[in-house]
């Protein structure tokens, strides 16, 4: 089955509620879960995810990450952290070691290539010594950067359909996916950042060798603590995934 990735901001809307949602994640269809580390200014997230960060920030405790990971790993789901560079810079390798010890499989740093390209030369190999560095590319990433960073890593690649999530910039799905599939062959490429509807998931799965990452689309269920809604949502995604087989 093609990969399905769910994104949650850590401790949004609260530690307790998120835990219950994670327990509900269906391992039959969900391959990875991304846990976003709350940030004061999650620059490249759209308004929906941004709002989750500011709410999560006051609940956030680093120790929770280990507990979230535990719930998922028990079910056979791999867990990845999503963190802005600032935190990694502040907490240093200590933070990477903590994530690794907590059984995270890797990390995504959405602003690394954009705002810290000099640092990336040093930090990517450092991360790769511990676990996977998941490259995050989008339509604004130059070809040369995609090729270079891909060659330094071996994990899956996260490709943003838009330069920022939660904003509908018109794009041609076919064109966008063809570009990255042509640039890096034989890699698992998962698309995210800007998936708005179940219909779009269907379309992306129809394009080829790639999976889908979903974030903003689930925020309302979390906010309303609407477990029933979340279950139904997972079921409809499951329908799309099974049909795509």
């Amino acid at each position: 089955m093609k990969p399905l990735i769910l994104y949650f901001t850590a401790d949004f809307p609260s530690y307790e509620i998120l835990k219950r949602f994670l327990e509900e994640v269906d391992p039959e269809i969900v391959k990875y879960v991304e846990i976003g580390i709350p940030e004061i200014n999650p620059l490249y997230d759209g308004p929906t995810i941004k709002a989750t960060h500011s709410m999560a920030l006051k609940n956030f405790q680093r120790e929770h990450l280990r507990q979230f990971a535990e719930i998922l790993i028990k079910k056979g789901i791999r867990v990845f952290a999503l963190s802005y560079y600032d935190r990694i810079n502040k907490e240093g390798t200590n933070f990477i070691h903590y994530l690794k010890d907590s059984k995270f499989s890797g990390i995504i740093i959405p602003d690394l290539l954009t705002d810290y390209s000099e640092e990336s030369e040093r930090i990517i190999p450092e991360i790769e010594e511990n676990f996977s560095f998941i490259p995050f590319f989008n339509p604004a990433t130059p070809d040369t950067v995609i090729q270079e960073v891909s060659s330094k890593t071996s994990s899956w690649i996260y490709y943003g359909l838009q330069p920022s999530t939660g904003i509908d910039i018109p794009f041609d799905l076919n064109e966008v996916s063809r570009r990255i599939l042509d640039l890096v062959a034989n890699r698992e490429i998962n698309f995210g950042f800007g998936i708005r509807t179940i219909e779009q998931i269907k379309e992306i799965l129809g394009l080829g060798s790639s999976g889908v990452a979903i974030g903003s689309l689930m925020v309302q269920y979390l906010k309303d603590n609407d477990m029933e809604g979340f279950r139904n949502f997972q079921n409809s995604v499951r329908g799309v995934y099974l049909n795509a087989e």
Partner: peptide, 20 residues
């Protein structure tokens, strides 16, 4: 063709999206 990734436009205001 740029040597580095171009930082995208961003919103400063949480409540309304200027990109939207």
């Amino acid at each position: 063709d740029l040597p580095k990734q171009l930082p995208p436009p961003v919103d400063r205001d949480e409540k309304k999206s200027s990109i939207q």
